[in-house]
Write a protein that binds this DNA or RNA. Structure first.
Length: 298
DNA sequence: CGATTCCCCTGATAGC
DNA sequence: TGCTATCAGGGGAATC
């Protein structure tokens, strides 16, 4: 659920508090037999981070990357419910009792300008991961980030047009575009007037071009608003900030279309556990087979 | 290669 | 009040 704009917001907020600071100690919760949250393990986290200085805070797609001055990288993927938080640290890490769903913590060196010196990784749903590596490889399995200099709308459109899967699923494919998720896939389909289950290869070229052309501006607006505002969602908050990018389609099934007033519909694309829900306006985003929107109004 | 399916997790919510 | 079933979803892995 945190997608490119939300991850970028986290990056900016965290960067101010951590870049340039040294890591004094680390803690991670012992494995419990379920998903491993800290990779490769607690000992390596300590070996890689303690004594090192955080050089920067970078993002590619939805991946956060904190390069350290000892050659290691601290990587954080927020998954669906992951958070990075800065807190004021009081006692020793060993003595602290961390709340549920906190998987790792790093104690930072004191900084007169910033009283918060404890970086926490929390993730209730455990789809995220925090890891250390000396050779980050996440870019190898990722397509182009929309803010990368190499992002070429024509090239992206050509890649999309080769796919026969539903456009919503193709937009979610991180190997083509890195950073989109369910929210912005829905929003892009809405903005371009494309029915989300349309086969990507069936979308008229000029319409697909319009959709792709909207990717960067839309993400820019969302970043400016510090992420998408999801009043219905329990995962809306990042740092308790007021997010001001209001989705026009995502999560609005049953509500009126902002453009024409028609009630939006919600449905699911893809079977099984990897299916994704989506919302769309049946009037503004007609199916390809329909030359015009269905005349009947429900 | 692409398309499709199963899986991991738990908070929130609806239904009984 | 308490229980149970359902849903949400990013992405790895396996399968077709």
């Amino acid at each position: 659920m945190p997608e490119l704009p939300e991850v970028e917001t986290v990056r900016r907020l965290i960067a101010r508090g951590v870049v340039g600071r040294r890591i004094l100690a680390s803690w991670s919760r012992p494995p419990d037999g379920l998903s491993v949250m800290v990779r490769p393990d607690s000992a390596t986290l300590t070996r890689a981070t303690v004594g090192a200085r955080i050089k920067g805070a970078e993002r590619y797609g939805k991946q956060l990357d904190f390069p350290l001055d000892n050659g290691w990288h601290l990587l954080v993927h927020l998954g669906m419910t992951g958070r990075l938080e800065l807190h004021q640290f009081e006692e020793s890490l060993e003595a602290m009792e961390f709340p549920r769903h906190v998987w790792a913590a790093l104690q930072l060196e004191p900084d007169a300008r910033n009283p918060n010196d404890l970086l926490i990784y929390r993730d209730p749903r455990r789809f995220g991961v925090i890891e250390v590596t000396q050779r980050p490889s996440y870019r190898d399995r990722m397509g182009v980030d929309p803010f990368d200099d190499r992002f070429d709308p024509d090239e992206i459109a050509r890649a999309i047009a080769k796919r026969r899967a539903p456009i919503k699923m193709v937009l979610l494919d991180q190997r083509i575009i890195a950073g989109l998720g369910s929210i912005y896939a829905d929003e892009l389909c809405f903005a371009a007037g494309v029915y989300p289950e349309t086969r990507a290869s069936d979308i008229p070229p000029e319409r697909l071009a319009a959709l792709v052309a909207e990717i960067r501006p839309m993400l820019e607006r969302a970043i400016a608003g510090e992420g998408a505002r999801l009043d219905q969602s329990p995962y809306q908050d990042i740092f308790g900030r007021a997010r001001t990018f209001y989705p026009k389609a995502y999560g609005r099934g049953g509500e009126p279309c902002v453009a024409c007033g028609t009630p939006l519909e919600s449905a699911r694309v893809g079977e099984g556990r990897r299916g994704r829900s989506y919302a769309y306006c049946p009037a503004c985003q007609p199916r390809l087979s329909e030359s015009k929107p269905a005349p009947e109004t429900p």
